[in-house]
Simulated assay, not measured.
Amino acid sequence: MQRIMIKSKIHRATVTDANINYEGSITIDKQLMELSNIIPGEKVQIVNINNGARLETYVIEGKENSGIICLNGAAARLCQKGDIVIIISYALMEDMEAINYKPKIVFVDEKNCPL
């Protein structure tokens, strides 16, 4: 049996921008992507702590050490600059791998610098 498990998470990031005119996605600081084991094009779930919205999109790599967390396209309607979000990626795992897997969790400060 395979299970969908949390692979990684960026916890309580602050949205730095929302660009409704972009084709869609979320732009994430390259450093945060590397620390959380998220790659460009990967599907992620975004949970908005401010308004309860949940959405899925794909990741675009942002400038390293910029702190950027920018919701693009339709996702920009669900998150505004200053909102606090949790960014979660999942992976399909066999039972034994799922039991032993430890997700990468990155905690950040109010400027999206890793703690």
Rank of each mutant, 00 (worst) to 15 (best):
I69P: 02
H11F: 00
L32H: 11
C113K: 15
R77E: 12
N50Q: 11
E110P: 00
I4A: 10
Q31L: 14
T27S: 14
G41L: 05
N72D: 06
N112M: 09
T16V: 01
P103F: 10
L55W: 02
A74I: 09
E34P: 09
V108G: 07
N19V: 04
I46K: 00
D109A: 07
V47T: 05
T16L: 03
I49F: 05
T16S: 10
S89G: 06
I46V: 13
E64D: 05
Q31I: 11
Y101Q: 05
P40T: 11
R54E: 05
A18Y: 00
N37S: 09
Y101A: 06
C79G: 08
C70S: 15
K102F: 00
A18R: 03
I88F: 09
D83C: 08
N48W: 05
K7L: 06
G73S: 14
S89F: 03
Q45A: 08
T14D: 03
I60M: 09
M93G: 07
C79V: 14
S8K: 01
V108L: 04
L115V: 09
M33F: 00
H11E: 06
E34R: 15
K63T: 13
L71Q: 03
Y58E: 03
A74S: 13
L71D: 02
N65I: 00
I49C: 02
R77V: 08
I68G: 08
G52R: 01
P103V: 10
I88W: 10
Y22N: 06
E64Y: 02
L92D: 12
T57A: 06
E23A: 02
R12W: 05
K102Y: 00
S8Q: 02
A13G: 04
V15L: 04
G82K: 12
Q80E: 15
L115N: 10
V106R: 09
L55M: 12
E23F: 01
I4L: 15
I88V: 13
L71H: 02
G41H: 11
I6S: 07
P103L: 10
E61M: 11
Q45D: 15
G41V: 05
G73F: 14
T27K: 11
L71G: 00
V44M: 06
I49A: 07
G41T: 07
N19E: 09
Q2M: 07
I87L: 06
I38G: 13
V85D: 04
T16W: 07
L71S: 01
I10M: 01
P40S: 14
L35F: 06
V47P: 00
G52A: 01
M33S: 08
A18L: 01
G41K: 12
D109E: 08
V85Y: 01
K81M: 10
S66D: 03
G67S: 03
K43W: 08
H11M: 06
M93W: 09
A98G: 12
K104R: 13
I84M: 07
I39P: 00
E34Q: 15
Y90D: 09
M33T: 05
N112I: 05
K9F: 04
A75V: 04
D109Y: 11
N100K: 14
I26M: 01
A98H: 08
V106E: 13
I60N: 06
R54I: 01
E110T: 02
Q80T: 12
I60Y: 04
K30T: 13
K63Q: 11
I46L: 11
K102R: 08
E23V: 04
S89D: 02
P114K: 12
A91K: 13
Y90I: 07
S36K: 07
L71T: 02
N50Y: 01
G62R: 07
T16A: 03
I46S: 02
I88D: 03
